[in-house]
């Protein structure tokens, strides 16, 4: 049982009927993918590529036309396959009339938690997502970023071993986005498996161990990020405090060895880092 991957999708196909016709539209076609325990897996693809449908099948919200999806070895159609799963949907919408604490209490109860254990978990999670001060505010008054954070907290309420995040940073500002990324990294450190779908490639590149790319419902590429992105015949050197003379000598050495210098430029920071420094986050 322990050898089972966190998520195993085999030959997954999903076709939706077109109303009033006999036609079927294929959303996912013969997809195979494996998310190993403890890794961060990014499911990439343009809009309408089948990412959300695949996630919904994994979570038992939609039934596959053929093939299977398993979570820790259990068929995703079984309720207990979700015992140790946390899910944050895209643009989450919760009951506006509940406060942050009430929301987490509600979702905690749905996971079978109660009493002091639930109470403590709520306090810890509100602290983790930085909503302690807003805990008694109704969700109707929360900003989009705060809703995303309470969404993350509810996804973690049962201390899950698998966290599924559908576009977790959609509509979140750079600081909030960085917090979510840090949280994902923290989850990985704690051995939690993360399956996330996104089309923000930069972010995926920062946190994912492996990625799968879906296009038109088919998994067109899958693998370790460094392997997929590596350019076989190129090597990058980043030098600090290099004098002009040293740079010249490196160029000469390359020329002597029949290697071509493809690019030479001054290193830059990322726009995100620059933005965060400027806004002192």
């Amino acid at each position: 049982m322990t050898a089972e991957p966190a998520v195993a999708v085999r030959g997954l196909t999903k076709r939706f009927p077109v109303p009033f016709t006999r036609r079927l539209i294929s959303a996912v076609e013969d997809v195979d993918l494996t998310v190993n325990r403890g890794e961060v897996y990014g499911l990439l693809g343009p809009n309408g590529s089948g990412k959300s449908t695949t996630l919904k099948i994994i979570l038992g919200l939609v039934w596959p036309t053929s093939g299977s999806a398993k979570i820790f070895g259990r068929d995703s159609g079984e309720v207990h396959s979700r015992d140790s799963v946390g899910f944050l949907p895209e643009n989450p919408y919760f009951y506006k009339f509940l406060t942050g604490t009430e929301t987490l209490r509600f979702f905690g109860k749905l996971c079978g938690l109660h009493g002091e254990q639930l109470h403590q978990r709520i306090i810890d999670l509100l602290d983790l997502v930085g909503l302690t001060n807003a805990r008694e505010q109704r969700l109707a008054t929360y900003s989009k970023g705060m809703l995303q954070r309470i969404g993350l907290a509810q996804a973690l309420i049962n201390d899950p071993q698998l966290v599924v995040l559908d576009e977790p940073t959609a509509g979140v500002d750079p600081a909030g986005s960085r917090d979510i990324r840090d949280l994902i990294v923290d989850l990985r450190k704690r051995g939690v498996t993360v399956l996330l779908s996104s089309h923000l490639l930069g972010q995926v590149q920062e946190v994912c161990d492996r990625v799968g790319i879906l296009a038109n419902g088919k998994l067109v590429r899958e693998g370790k990020l460094e392997e997929l992105l590596a350019i076989e015949n190129q090597t990058e050197l980043v030098l600090e405090n290099a004098s002009e003379d040293l740079v010249k000598r490196v160029q000469e050495l390359a020329r002597d060895a029949n290697a071509r210098l493809v690019a030479q430029r001054r290193s830059t920071t990322t726009l995100e880092r620059f933005f965060l420094d400027a806004t002192d986050e």
Binding site: G60, L61, D83, P89, N91, Y93, F94, F107, L110
Partner: peptide, 14 residues
């Protein structure tokens, strides 16, 4: 419509 059902049914709720 609000996708609240997704969040609820993605928990171990029959």
């Amino acid at each position: 419509e609000d996708r609240t059902a997704y969040t609820i049914l993605a928990k171990p709720v029959p």
